[in-house]
Design a protein around this nucleic acid. Structure first.
Lengths: 111, 111
DNA sequence: CCATTACTTAGCCATATGGCTAGCAATCTC
DNA sequence: GAGATTGCTAGCCATATGGCTAAGTAATGG
């Protein structure tokens, strides 16, 4: 089966790949631009790019001999949503323990 | 080195472990309660629990012969924050791009 | 105190992951 | 068109991961 989340989270479980994502948030880049800051042979780095791409977090297009890579929205949002959902349920449970405080705070409605 | 995020995300990259987290959001449970819905030998399942615990997402306490497991807040929030941060930067960039596009359009800068 | 319950440890196995080198392929540039 | 640039493929290697069985330990219950 292997849900999308499997691939998304495991893609993010590596600092090199997170760095690539972080870099790509500020705009598309070529493979060698992305590779430059990483002290690693290019083929090793390409495997990381491959994972990001097959997780759907990134897309790329080759023009001439240069491949430009850009970030893709959806997976990031999905992963974030999963975490958000879990946290909401979990916090909801905690919140019931301090329901009164929260209720009072909401009644204050200062914001 | 291996940052916290490494462990957090890789802990979440497995459906069994996500299911455990999801289960634990609705309250603590014993090892065998957690194991029950998973078609897997107990030692295999214990490895998953071990990863969740060493990622700091879960804590446990053994009372008598039963080990009770409960979820831990911080890591979930950290992982979510990382995603949120990336998405904000990325969306901010899209906003600037579409602002530019709008600006150009208003200026009659097209066809 | 003996059996059962609830883990725990040890060890095996197959596959995946993350790194490398060497060498191929395609495309600019002069 | 020769050579540099940019990327891709193939294949090797060590370690990690995720599953298993078998056997051990530590409470609890009868």
């Amino acid at each position: 089966m292997a849900s999308n989340l499997d691939h998304f989270f495991s893609a993010l479980a590596d600092p090199t790949r997170r760095a690539v994502i972080a870099r790509l948030t500020s705009g598309p880049a070529s493979v060698s631009e992305l590779h430059a800051p990483h002290d690693m042979a290019l083929p090793s780095f390409l495997k990381h790019l491959g994972k990001l791409e097959s997780a759907g977090m990134v897309r790329s297009l080759k023009i001439g001999r240069v491949r430009m890579v850009h970030i893709e929205a959806v997976p990031m949002a999905e992963a974030e949503d999963w975490l958000k959902t879990q946290r909401r349920i979990w916090e909801g449970r905690l919140d019931r323990l301090s329901a009164l405080a929260e209720h009072l705070e909401r009644n204050g409605d200062h914001g």
